[in-house]
Design a protein around this nucleic acid. Sequence first.
DNA 1: ACCTGAACACCGTTCAAGT
DNA 2: ACCTGAACACCGTTCAAGT
Lengths: 205, 205
Amino acid sequence: MARPRQQLLSPEIIADAAMRLVAKNGDFTIPGVAAALGVHPSSLYHHLPGGRLAIVHQMRQRLYSALDLGSSMDSSRPALDRLRQWMRAYRSATAQVPEAVTVLVGAQVEDRPTLEIYEALFVILRDAGVPREQRVAASAMIDAVVLGSAVDAGSPVPLWRIGAEDLPELRDVAATDDDERRNESGFELAVDAVVVAVASMSRPG
Amino acid sequence: MARPRQQLLSPEIIADAAMRLVAKNGDFTIPGVAAALGVHPSSLYHHLPGGRLAIVHQMRQRLYSALDLGSSMDSSRPALDRLRQWMRAYRSATAQVPEAVTVLVGAQVEDRPTLEIYEALFVILRDAGVPREQRVAASAMIDAVVLGSAVDAGSPVPLWRIGAEDLPELRDVAATDDDERRNESGFELAVDAVVVAVASMSRPG
DNA sequence: ACCTGAACACCGTTCAAGT
DNA sequence: ACCTGAACACCGTTCAAGT
């Protein structure tokens, strides 16, 4: 019984189980993943010796390896159009499991698929004419918008909890916040804003 | 010895100790806070019965009660100017302890000082002419930019960890990312972008 | 009222042992 | 090679007991 005839685990199986737990509960635990897979917690370390952190890395890799950058890499197209497409693709992949953002941001990016996504972004920023020294700042802004929007897409819980207090505008807005298209339209507005900002950073070259 | 002559604890003392740990380590634990104050973990529950979550709420309250919204509430000034000022003030307060953002976003906002900050934002958005249905989306975008920038201000650790891989643009940019003013200038660009976006959401009225 | 100290149900990780 | 099972050092929380 110590070694089953058929292999029970793999990095992919573990990461997928963890992702399901994150989608359901907003987080995952080692015992939780093990229980979901019908094994003991210590078994996981045989496939992902890095422990919890390695599981997070594997989760991110799984999530973003499916991302299709499409023609955002086509250097014959206008850079700002490619930037729009990059943002939509990255957000769309992230918003599949919005609950994962909180878990993922806790760890450095070091898997190949995700690094390639950022490489693509920096190529786009270069082609857009953004000076080298400003590219990281631009990417930080873009990251904030994309990940922020993805998180918002999955937060039905109101951000604010108002008691019996005289905060009329906040109360008013919190009450009417049931628009289905709110997140989508908010993101498109943010994309427009980012494109304007990036264009303003650009210099001829 | 069970009851000292002088009171050792209070919600403020506990929150401040927790904040110091967050600033130093990026997080806090109940035993850690208790040890820093020279008491037992169970003692904290007498002052903050809500446990860990109550400590987080108290931390946010302490952090933002010092925030001065200044003339961003002066309705005679242009709304977009007030928005700029609001963003700078909120970011400045947050960037004092950038490590706290990760801890704070895990809990709903329900303390008076922070709710008042958001109330002020929604007054500004209303005065700017943003339709009611779009105000939450706008605030989500603004939140993402402000908090994202504050987090970035305190992350000396590079977001990316590149091995021996052919990612030239990313490597190039990561290597030259030691500009002191990077975060500041990145934030100001983002503020410009947000103002443009909010202006584009506005309708006469 | 305020803090102690023991207790409980957890968590992540290690490691010798089994097949 | 793959999984078990016991062990360890943690964490957050509760509660009776002391002064």
